[in-house]
Amino acid sequence: MVDTATISQMAHLGAGIAIGFGAVGAGLGIGFATKGLMDAVSRQPEVAGKAFGFFLLGAALSEACALYAFVIAFLLLDK
């Protein structure tokens, strides 16, 4: 059988993998959101203020995906 020390090590490894892959998705999402903001502002500079509000909203929504992974990683660290 697997002893508890190995389970703990594997849980810590899994926590690292979880937060790593979660951060990849959120980084891509915020990058795409920034690209959209830059496109919009360079095409129409007068919408910059309004577009920045929507950008912050979208960035917060895609950042939340990384934070779900963070919660999972934090639960794994207790193992």
Partner: peptide, 13 residues
Amino acid sequence: LSLAIRLFANIFA
């Protein structure tokens, strides 16, 4: 679920 975890995880992180 997503509403609760989003707010909680942002502040906790």
